[in-house]
Write a protein that binds this DNA or RNA. Structure first.
Length: 489
RNA sequence: CGGGGUGUAGCGCAGCCCGGUAGCGCGCGUCGUUCGGGACGACGAGGCCGGAGGUUCGAAUCCUCUCACCCCGACCA
């Protein structure tokens, strides 16, 4: 029992940490606030990347790469943007080390101070828009649809593996358009790409919505978001897509000649998701026995465990099953390790979240069956060898759907419509508070007051919200629609 | 940056109050018995007790100073 996991009910954050550690997803590193993503965790990220990258390309985007360093002066070109990031920037001031005069090691060479400090990118709008100025001259150059996969640094005070780290991996799309309408459509399109990915691949239902002025990206006119609900009833912002208006075009003087031969500023969007998604994936599906990975993102979808040892017949059967599964594009691993015991392996693969486990023993061979265990429900059954690949293909589908449905049901159970502040507070006191749908008078002041009083923030104004006259849950002032509140990560 | 806490073997901890040169569990190695849900036994390897200074015949233990990390707040994907 070396790898026990703290139960969710006992201590949810410890449970999360236990999963990350014991499923070998990531470790804290020697650098404060930065994590080492281990092979198991990185494989999930690679699958996320792979699918998103396909979806970006299907929607006409291409990849490029911009520098890690941003001249300090760039950041101050857009006033709101600097303000949003100034407090969490890592700054490069020197470019050389030297041996310490007293022989105690290396020190920064004081004579190697940079003329202008470089900021390690917290996001790349500024360097990219400075570059786009040279790339865009005419409406014929538009739209410009570029994405980059990169690391960024935000000097966070408090960090949590995957959910908030000082350095993280992400993608950032940066597009330029001829018209306001086209840019808005692009931002919304990418929100929908993210939502589709979250729901169909991560099996993580999300609310599509728009951020309030207070919560939106520094420098954006509108921020579109996808918000997911974790098992502890807190919301996770899983992806954002920003309509940047002409803010960056004006700050970096990016103009184009229109078809009417008029000089105009271009319209911009940016959008991103990060390794935070891995945290969301863990917190959406996993249980007290360990990680649960939806089949469509699982690095290994099926593992075959010989019981008790891989004799020649078992090996033959396993090889045959593997060949059939691989032909269907299913990833499968045959565990031929003879040093570990069967029970240990079972526990280990459950901990690692592999969706389907096949057990093959002498008894099974005699009966022409294999034991099939699914990770999501922990159910086991004997299934005939004949047609096993079709069965597993279908089972993986079922698991994917079941995980999504379970998460959807969970969210429905933990979304509460509230009409007065006492109820509002009462819901937040619950063990699993969840989303709260309530009226809000539309002012930042009220939003901040509610946050101060309850720690809950407005996650978004859902896209599908219906107009409904009502009274603000705090002030009683007139409200035209409900918004979604929650405590957030 | 405020408030609290912790640094002793790879990990989790005990020892500290009442100084005498370090111990437990897990993990790790070898051998044997096991093997259809996290096996058991025997033997074994592994630590300048976060760092510096001080008190003392003697410091993991007492004193001073430092450094690091964690938790709770303010900020954030």
């Amino acid at each position: 029992m070396a790898k026990e996991i703290t139960s969710r009910s006992e201590d949810y954050s410890q449970w999360y940490l236990d999963i990350v550690k014991k499923a070998n997803l990531a470790d804290n590193s020697a650098v404060r606030g930065c994590m080492v993503i281990k092979p198991n965790g990185y494989a999930i990220w690679e699958n996320i990347q792979g699918q998103l990258d396909r979806m970006f390309k299907e929607t006409g985007h291409v990849n490029a790469y911009f520098p890690l360093f941003i001249p300090k002066s760039f950041l101050s070109r857009e006033a709101e943007h600097v303000e949003g990031f100034a407090k969490e920037c890592a700054v490069v001031t020197h470019h050389r080390l030297m041996n310490a005069p007293d022989g105690s090691g290396v020190v920064v060479d004081p004579s190697a101070r940079l003329e202008e400090e470089l900021i390690i990118r917290p996001t790349s709008e500024t360097i990219i828009w400075n570059t786009y100025r040279d790339w865009i001259n005419s409406y014929r150059d538009l739209p410009l649809l570029i994405n980059q996969w990169a690391n960024v640094v935000r000097w966070e005070m408090r960090t949590r593996l995957f959910l908030r780290t000082a350095e993280f991996l992400w993608q950032e799309g940066h597009t330029a358009h001829a018209t306001r309408q086209e840019a808005i459509e692009e931002a919304k399109k990418m929100q929908e790409v993210y939502a589709t990915f979250a729901e169909e691949y991560m099996a993580m239902p999300v609310i599509r919505g728009v951020k309030t002025a207070n919560e939106r990206f520094a420098g954006a006119e509108d921020t579109y978001t996808i918000e997911a609900l974790m098992q502890d009833g807190r919301a996770l912002q899983a992806g954002t897509s920003h309509f940047l208006g002409q803010n960056f075009a004006k700050a970096f003087d990016v103009k184009f000649l229109s078809e009417e031969n008029k000089e105009e500023y271009v319209w911009a969007t940016s959008w991103g998701v990060s390794t935070r998604l891995v945290g969301g994936l863990i917190m959406t599906h996993s249980d007290d026995d360990g990680l649960v990975i939806p089949p469509r993102l699982a690095p290994t979808q099926v593992v075959i465990v010989p019981i008790p040892k891989p004799g020649p017949e078992i090996g033959e059967v396993a090889d045959k099953i593997m060949a059939e599964l691989k032909a269907k594009g299913i990833t499968v691993k045959f565990d031929t390790d003879t040093k570990k015991r069967v029970g240990f392996k079972f526990a280990e693969y459950e901990l690692q979240g592999i969706p389907v486990r096949l057990g093959i023993g002498k008894r099974d061979l005699e009966n022409g069956v294999v034991e099939v265990a699914r990770r999501d429900t922990k159910e086991k059954q004997s299934v005939a060898l004949e047609g096993i690949a079709d069965f597993i293909e279908q089972l993986l589908e079922d698991i994917q759907n079941n995980l999504f449905q379970k998460a959807l049901d969970f969210r429905a159970e933990h979304t509460t419509v509230v009409d007065n502040f006492d109820d509002f507070k009462a819901v937040l006191e619950r063990d699993i508070p969840g989303f709260i749908s309530a009226h809000w008078d539309g002012t930042t002041e009220t939003e901040l007051k509610i946050k101060e009083l309850t720690k809950a923030t407005i996650r978004c104004i859902p896209n599908d919200v219906v107009d409904e006259a009502g009274k603000c849950v705090l002030t009683g002032n007139a409200s035209e629609r409900r918004v979604l509140f929650a405590k957030a990560y």
